[in-house]
Design a protein around this nucleic acid. Structure first.
Lengths: 205, 205
DNA sequence: CAATACTGGATACTATGACTATCCAACCAC
DNA sequence: GTGGTTGGATAGTCATAGTATCCAGTATTG
């Protein structure tokens, strides 16, 4: 065990905690006081840290996501839905009306399936923006929609097509792990756009 | 006070807590046992809930963001940087090398300013994806970059241009509050793209 | 005008989450 | 055989985000 601790940089006590919580599978037991851990465990630890530290999931939600990766359910659509439900922004599933989300999705001409968790998440996010006096305009929505759809196409083009299980795993992780990248890139794009369009410059106008 | 409690839906004890923590400004005192609260306070409460519940900020980070909105610093660039630093994915500011982020930004031909917090956030997000075996390809990056830059242009076109303070407030809130919308839309776009390209359908293939 | 109800403010308490530390007995390596 | 690890169990810690209680000073109303 000292090996994976050293290679992953995660403290022993924490590794034991993940073992306890069922995030990390036990090593192959070789007697009462030792077990074998391998490359898999190191990768698993990296994944756990990525989901908790970077994506910001709780240990409980991380466990859900890992469970979906380990044994994907029936099909991609259902599995991805469950994964999405484990990702922020969390929307409680008590019946809120989905009017804003529905109207947005219809404006975009996209598939509207109210059972898909992202719909409630969108509703919540739109309601929050509105409650603060920054409602989403239809025009802005259409702009976002166009470019996000293009991004989604890029994402989907990467999904391995042969093995169904691999495809689901890729889709789940891709949804979760690329989100922070997208957020950071948007922030950087703001910089770049304002610098090149308005002449703003690092260190003050 | 019962008024804002009722209108905002936030429990009294919690309102008092926000008052204590300095997230909510005190009402205009009218004697030792009463104070006046108004529309401003209701809006402020909505903003606090939006930042904590939807964006997922801690009370402490929320306070930072609110502080920037209340009294923006020197200029937009600096203020937005501080706001961005208060947003996930958090990157500790101890000297990590920013090789991945730098290379990504250079690939895109964007402005590279290592002091801008989003650079460290990008580094962390890219490193996480890589550590899990899903590194970002240059090709995918270019695709993301193109579309996110377009989104950033939409964002910046909305920023009010007259009043500098209003512009800063808008930029800070827009960065934070639209992020969950973008995340949800991307997830929905995945649905729509896969449904129209692969023939997948709600309820199973 | 007196009883009751409601404030603002201070203080103390609780619940949850994510670790972290301690023990212990079994081993394995020398 | 004996000292240092290991796996496993149990208990303790710390931070965060509230809740709950108390209190005394109004305000209200019959």
């Amino acid at each position: 065990m000292s090996e994976i601790v050293e290679r992953s940089g995660v403290p022993v006590a924490t590794v034991k905690y993940y073992l306890r919580e069922g995030l990390l599978p036990p090593g192959e037991s070789t007697g009462a006081t030792s077990a074998l851990y391998g490359e898999d465990h190191v990768r698993r630890l990296a994944l756990i840290r990525a989901l908790t530290d970077v994506v910001g999931l709780s240990v409980a939600k991380t466990k859900v996501v890992l469970g979906l990766i380990d044994s994907p359910r029936t099909d991609l659509y259902v599995t991805l839905g469950e994964a999405v439900a484990a990702l922020p922004p969390y929307a409680q599933d008590d019946v809120e009306d989905l009017a804003r989300a529905r109207s947005a999705i219809e404006t975009l001409g996209w598939l509207y399936d109210p059972s898909y968790p992202a719909v409630a998440q969108l509703e919540r996010a739109l309601a929050a923006a509105e409650s603060v006096g920054m409602p989403m305009s239809a025009e802005r929505l259409r702009g976002y929609g166009e470019h996000l759809r293009a991004i989604a196409q890029i994402d989907i083009a990467q999904v391995p097509s042969g093995d169904a299980k691999a495809a689901i795993q890729y889709a789940v992780l891709g949804t979760a792990l690329y989100e922070p990248i997208l957020a950071a890139l948007r922030r950087l794009a703001h910089q770049d756009v304002s610098s090149s369009e308005l002449g703003a410059r690092p260190g003050g106008a």
